[in-house]
Design a protein around this nucleic acid. Structure first.
Length: 436
DNA sequence: TCTGGGGTCCTAGGACCC
DNA sequence: TCTGGGGTCCTAGGACCC
């Protein structure tokens, strides 16, 4: 995408949904608007999305729900269990609308998308961004912010400015290069280094210790110094802040993913091998579905399980076993068998496991399937047919859902989700009803 | 009682080789 | 007492992102 000659056009537009999960909830429950609302992670564990009102009463991002009880009660904060099916569907709709505003787009996360505006004249960027923003609001009911700049890192900075800086929040748009030079410089001098995309909470204090406190400080620091402090990544970030496009995606297809991870924490800890194994069977099964849906074979898997590290008085164990397959595959039964066998062997009695997962690695496209020496073609064909049938059954919305037997009993470790809203856009039984 | 889930990339250090 | 040097590959762990 984009090209390094971003100087000719507007560059990149970064569109980002405001308080995305909360905004999705508000689309279907307008009564939530104007009120402090948060969305919780799986298991109703942490705060993962906050309305502006929730931010205003002091609920930190990522805060454990049980630790903000008093703020919640004092301010009537509404906590909702995550409804990822709804957010995923709204995200897909959002991306479809945004695609119409650029020759190329790159979905960066569930609520973010980079648009290639390198051929859009800078003078037209502001009005284009405003038009796009109101279109999204009109079609989907989702508010978003738009940052436009010559590099992705600067577009992120512009986007943050559009959302937070009082001069920009009304429009929700910030076109960095359309600002007078002095104003732009002042923005970069006010922008905390730790808020720059790519500079995290670990590095920010280190940089501050060396006098690098703002985006402008990092941009102007000597590259040798930055290299020593934060490696090539930090040098790249500084170059990006200076307007050098180092993160262009190019025209090639996006890199294929390298791993598939499926993990959860449990509502009730698993204290016996059977419970843990049935949960792990479920994760292996989900991971296999994802791999097949993307046409990938896995070369191996890692199964892991952890005790609750916050309970220091309890015995701790971080279980992790890697299993390499004889040949790359995508058969649910093979994954489940490998994962459950491994976890049973590594399980330590007397430990309460609170979270577990399965990660597939060594992914290769199934189109280039290679059988191991002495591989059994007939068996492979039967496996493929069975998996196709399994996926077909499980694709039926509201269908029975076909599971391998090893998953039996996994409800025992299911997470809590007591505040979930209806899956309004993806489930016939939960579709909103309008009354006239 | 109660602390998310799913990814990527980089680096340092060890193993191994000549 | 002395105990190469340079290259590659792999892995674990850290840092970052949303």
């Amino acid at each position: 995408m984009g090209g390094s000659q971003g100087v000719t056009g507007a560059g990149y537009a970064l569109v980002d949904g405001n308080n995305f999960f909360v905004s999705c909830e508000r689309v279907f429950r307008p009564s939530l608007s104007g009120r402090p609302v948060v969305v919780l992670s799986n298991n109703d564990g942490c705060v993962v999305s906050r309305s502006n009102e929730a931010k205003a009463v002091g609920i930190p991002m990522g805060a454990p729900w049980h630790k903000v009880r008093d703020i919640v009660e004092r301010n009537g904060v509404i906590g909702l269990s995550a409804n990822f099916e709804l957010y995923g569907d709204m995200s897909a709709r959002l991306m479809r609308v945004l695609e119409g505003f650029a020759p190329r787009s790159e979905v960066y996360s569930v609520d973010e998308c980079f648009l290639d505006w390198s051929s859009l004249p800078l003078a037209e960027a502001e009005s284009a961004a405003r038009a796009m923003r109101s279109q999204v609001l009109r079609l989907l009911g989702l508010p978003c912010g738009v940052g436009v700049a010559p590099t992705k890192t600067l577009a992120k900075l512009a986007n943050a400015t559009a959302k937070k800086h009082p001069d920009f929040t009304r429009a929700g748009v910030c076109v960095l290069m359309a600002l007078p030079g002095r104003e732009r410089e002042s923005l970069l001098r006010q922008f905390a280094a730790g808020d720059v995309w790519g500079i995290g909470r670990r590095s920010a204090p280190v940089l501050a210790g060396h006098g690098l406190r703002t985006a402008a400080d990092v941009r102007d620091a000597s590259r040798e110094r930055l290299r020593a402090l934060g490696g090539v990544t930090l040098v790249r970030t500084a170059d990006e802040l200076a307007g050098i496009d180092c993160l262009a995606s190019g025209d090639e297809a996006p890199a294929p993913r390298q791993s598939v991870l499926c993990s959860r924490s449990f509502g009730t800890p698993a204290e016996d091998a059977d419970t843990l194994a049935s949960a792990v069977a479920g994760f292996a099964s989900r991971a296999a579905e994802t791999a097949r849906a993307e046409g990938m074979l896995a070369g191996g898997l890692i199964v892991f399980a952890d005790t609750n590290r916050f309970r220091e008085e309890l015995p701790q164990h971080r279980l992790s076993v890697s299993v390499a397959f004889d040949e790359p595959g995508d058969d649910t039964r093979a994954f489940v068998s490998a994962a459950t066998t491994a976890v049973r062997e590594a399980f330590r009695p007397g430990h309460a496991y609170r979270r577990a997962g399965v990660m597939l690695y060594g992914l290769t496209p199934s189109a280039g399937r290679q059988l191991a020496l002495f591989g059994d073609t007939e068996r492979a064909a039967r496996s493929a047919a069975l998996m196709r049938a399994l996926d077909a059954v499980n694709r039926v919305p509201g269908g029975p859902g076909l599971r391998v037997a090893a998953e039996m009993g996994r409800e025992k470790s299911a997470g809590r989700s007591t505040r979930r809203t209806p899956r309004s856009t993806t489930n016939w039984d939960e579709i909103p009803v309008a009354k006239a």
